[in-house]
Amino acid sequence: MTTVLAQINTKTATLLFTALLGLSVITFAGHIQAATLHDAAHDVRHATGFPCH
């Protein structure tokens, strides 16, 4: 029982971590307003419908 619970928790943590990693990538590439990042990703942010400027 304990082993099963531990497996479930590890699995949930792995899924959560993967999704958070994805969210960080989206935030970094699409939303952070730092000038260099903004300029580099400018066209993509507009074309992908992210709020820009």
Binding site: L15, T18, A19, L21, G22, V25, I26, F28, V44, T48
Partner: peptide
């Protein structure tokens, strides 16, 4: 664009 879709894919696959 590749970066953004990799980010979306990480969330989608999870």
């Amino acid at each position: 664009t590749a970066l953004i879709y990799c980010g979306y894919a990480l969330i989608l696959v999870a």
